[in-house]
Every structure is written in structure tokens, then in C-alpha cells.
Design a protein around this nucleic acid. Sequence first.
DNA 1: GTCATGTAAGACTTGTATAGTCTTATATAT
DNA 2: ATATATAAGACTATACAAGTCTTACATGAC
Lengths: 157, 157
Amino acid sequence: MLQFNRKTEYAFLAIEYVARKAEEVPGAVTSTRELSEAYHMPYPLLAKIMQQLSNHGLIKSVQGTKGGYILAKKATNISVADIVEIFDGRVAVADCFKEEKITCPQWDGCHIRDPFYELNMKIYQMLSETSIADLLKKSSAPLYPITVSQKSKEALS
Amino acid sequence: MLQFNRKTEYAFLAIEYVARKAEEVPGAVTSTRELSEAYHMPYPLLAKIMQQLSNHGLIKSVQGTKGGYILAKKATNISVADIVEIFDGRVAVADCFKEEKITCPQWDGCHIRDPFYELNMKIYQMLSETSIADLLKKSSAPLYPITVSQKSKEALS
DNA sequence: GTCATGTAAGACTTGTATAGTCTTATATAT
DNA sequence: ATATATAAGACTATACAAGTCTTACATGAC
């Protein structure tokens, strides 16, 4: 499947939320509980995802009551590719673009590797050129009926 | 995983081989057996893949002894996206770009759908703009040591 | 005509990675 | 103190991909 796995999707939603909240209310902290309720994500799973994002230096934890997470660096300096690589490993449409040692039984005589490598790099480029700040910008237009946004506004108050 | 599944990879290899062989030896037919040996692909699985490609009108079967498969249309008219869609379904980096009815628990209040939809369409465009003929062109440069190519030449004689 | 070689197709099994759960530990604001 | 928060690892269930097995059918070669 040419598809992000669910952890990656959750991470996108989570980090965009953290960034957006901090933009609306400077200094605001986002708790895992708040996030899991806003997006109906299973709390324990999301908690682990937040820890991984934290371990990789994308967000910082604020411990204790009223704790939560904030961005560890500027939203313009966190790319979609950074997040993908945490949960999906290196961006690669095929195993042979991921591994150091060649294990592919089709490697010898493979005539399609070059064109697909090209494709792979274009996809990677797109992902690494898109930052969390870009997500915030592009999502501004409310093209769809957003029913829960009110709820998240309340959570911010 | 942002990765093609193995059936899709096998299909790429297979259809590129069929196209290349027919280009080198006009009218040549490629049997599943020959393909599975050339690329070390499990025969029964490959056989099913060939049937699916045939059912979807990308290749045509030639039955009986010395039978096999040939392209059903010109290599320029078969896109990589056509093949992906047979084995992976619609090109979609997330479920919400695939389904008709909305089942995503995060749909309401989702702020990242638009930017990722944009990304999705760019990827789809790349896949649908790349034809099997393009694969043949781009793979022409023998950048790597190709040890099995001799074998496939023998198969062609 | 028969036989070998090929495609056609469905049911079944296995393996593996993802998704999610459970448990326990630790930090801190109130 | 205690409630609420993060931290982290081990465990389990499930879904899907991958591959196998079995049987049927078509046709060219002899």
C-alpha cells in the first residue's frame, strides 16, 4: 500500500494540533488526553507516539499537572518527512531504496530500478519540502463542514 | 508504509519484461514460467498476477504450448498508475482519499486533509504520467552489473 | 488422438507487521 | 499527600499480505 500507517497519521494530526494551539495561544501546552479526545485517537497508543516524537526532538514534554507537549523547534523546521521517517523508516517505495545491503532477489537484471528511484526521490523531496508550518497555512481554508472545531476551540479556552 | 506491495512490484517487472521482449523480438510471447525464472518470483503467485493483469486488459494471454502473454495495448498507453490500482487499489496516502463514504473518526475537525490531498494528487499524477514505455527508456542505461540479462537473452533465442 | 505444456481460478495456509492493550514507574502542580 | 501528567517496555490480537495447493480447461506438437 502506498499509504502512511496510522501511527504516522496520528502523529501528523498531533503535531499540527500542538503547533496550531501554540500559535493561537502563545505558550500553550497540549496534553495527550486533550489530543486523544479531540481526534478520537486511542490514548495509550497516542501517548507512545508523543514519546517517540519527543525522543526524536520534534516536541518537548512539560511534566506534571497541566503538563503536555510543545514544539521543540519552529514549525517551519519540522518537515513531514521527519515525521514519516520516525514511524515508517526511510521514505522508499521499494525495499531496495531502503537497505544498505542488497537482499532483493530481483536486483540482478532489474530494469525498473532507475525509473522508480527517480520517482522515489521526487516523493521524498515533496515530503521534506513540506513543513508543519505549511500544513497550518494550507489548512486555513475551511472547505468542509467542520463540526468538531468548535469543540477544540473550547478546549483551548 | 509508503511502499508498493510485492504483487505490484512483480507486476511492474513482469509487464516491463513482456514489453521489452516484444520490442526486441517482435511478436514474441512471454510465458509465466520464463518470467518466474528470470526474476526468481514464485511461479503460482506470478501466475495469478498475470491473470489479473490480463483480466484488467493490460496484457493478453496466448493459450496452449508455446503460449504466454503479450501486451494488450501499446506500452505508451499503459501507465504505472494502472498497474498500481489493480493490486493496491486507488492511489491514496490515506484512507479518506480512497473511500466514497466517510468512515474516518478524525474527519471532522481534520486540519491536514487539504494539504495531504494536494500531495496525494501530485503522486498520482506522477504515476499516471509514467508509462511502461518510459520505464523501457529510462532503464536503458546499464548503470549496474547485470548478470541475469545474459540468461534472458538466451531465453529469447 | 493423446500428451505435454500452457493459462484460469478459487480455496486454503502461513507469516509478519501493525495496532492496540496492559502494567509499572516517575515527575510535578495544587 | 494526591491527582494528573509523562515515560517506557512487554505483551496480545488481528488483519493483511504472501505464498501454496488443487483442480479445471485450452491448444500446439507429435
